[in-house]
């Protein structure tokens, strides 16, 4: 997969000011939620962003959706900087980019009929006759495996998996180029997760849609991701094609995430590792490699920022265990 580039993220950062003191007005520090992140997503491709709670995944998705403005860096979609759009540009953006969120119980308004929920992005962004809208809604419902007559029902009349289908139909109705999926299946049963993942794959095949898929679980994205970026405390520590990362995980943190995948069979249980548990505060991340306080391979050199070393297939890893060799490095990672 090396289609044309749809999304280009360049040195993106988002720092949140945290207040303290008796009046809550003093600046106590800055949470470096996203800190110097770069990646690209090709047309018709899925990039999975994986990491533990609090590493900055949702902040990236909110930046991508223009719900936050970057502290530094930029996101371009089809060559246009999404945070520097005029009014017409914003309308264009809303048709091109849609989102599906984690909680299928909270994300649909309970008093709207399902048909109206699905139609909403279309009605807001395009001028179409009622009949045309109805036809498009019926089309979308078919695509996600719902019956057209169900358009008259309310969200509470559906199961969790069906609600996620409704959210997906609504996200896809404007035929967006990019859909941001923030933990789209974590709240669902395993059996239903499989249905939704299969559906995502079918839609991508039929429509060439790109996905930014966010998850904390490496096992659940293998089936659908082309590229995987592993995040830790606001930074991407390793990024590679799915085949590369599943067959040859390099960064000690990527390996720790693999070790944390629950066994497929009771015979695969492993004895517990005594690796340090606690994730350091993003207010005050460790100097150098941010993973060094938990890394079993950490040495003195890890107090300095690790090099970012290129990997076969276009990815990179940021760890002192993989020294940059001449010609293969993209330069040291930002501190």
């Amino acid at each position: 997969m090396s289609g044309s580039t749809l999304v280009e993220v360049e040195d993106l950062s988002k720092h949140f000011r945290v207040t303290g003191g008796p009046l809550g007005v003093r600046t106590a520090g800055h949470v470096r939620a996203v800190d110097g992140v770069s990646f690209r997503i090709g047309a018709g491709e899925t990039l999975a962003l994986v990491g533990e709670s609090g590493c900055g995944k949702t902040t990236i998705s909110r930046l991508m959706l223009r719900l936050e403005t970057p502290t530094t860096g930029a996101i371009t979609l089809a060559g246009r900087d999404v945070h520097r759009l005029d009014r017409a540009g914003v309308r264009w953006f809303r048709r091109k980019v849609q989102a599906v969120f984690q909680d299928p119980w909270a994300s649909l308004s309970p008093r709207m009929r399902v048909g109206d929920i699905i139609a909403e992005p279309l009605v807001v962004n395009e001028r179409l006759s009622r009949t045309r809208v109805r036809l498009r809604v019926a089309d979308m419902m078919g695509l996600v495996g719902l019956q057209p007559w169900q358009a008259r029902l309310f969200p509470h009349e559906f199961s969790g998996g069906q609600r996620q289908r409704i959210a997906l139909a609504s996200a896809l109705i404007t035929e967006p180029d990019l859909v941001v999926l923030d933990e789209p299946v974590s709240a669902l049963d395993v059996s239903v997760q499989a249905q939704v993942m299969n559906l995502l794959k079918d839609i991508q095949r039929e429509r060439g849609t790109s996905f930014l898929l966010i998850s904390h679980d490496l096992a659940s994205v293998r089936y659908i991701a082309h590229q995987v970026a592993v995040m830790y405390l606001g930074e991407i520590v390793e990024q590679a094609t799915a085949d590369e990362i599943y067959e040859r995980p390099r960064h000690p943190y990527t390996r720790a995430l693999f070790d944390a995948i629950l066994p497929a069979h009771p015979d695969d249980r492993r004895p517990g590792s005594d690796a340090a548990d606690e994730v350091p505060s993003p207010l005050n991340p460790p100097s150098g490699c941010r993973f060094r306080t938990r890394c079993p391979h950490a040495t003195d050199v890890c107090g300095h920022a690790p090099p970012r070393t290129a990997l076969p297939g276009g990815g990179s890893v940021a760890c002192h265990l993989y020294p940059a060799t001449a010609g293969s490095t993209k330069g040291p990672v930002r501190q």
């Binding site: 199961s159 395993v190 059996s191 997760q193 499989a194 299969n198 490496l218 096992a219 089936y223 599943y246």
Partner: peptide, 23 residues
């Protein structure tokens, strides 16, 4: 059997995940 089959696996790359249709 169906629940066991629909688990995502890290070691095998499948083209389709077996799922239990219906609810």
């Amino acid at each position: 059997r169906a629940l066991l089959d629909s688990r995502p696996r890290r070691d095998v790359r499948l083209d389709r995940l077996p799922s239990i249709e219906g609810s």
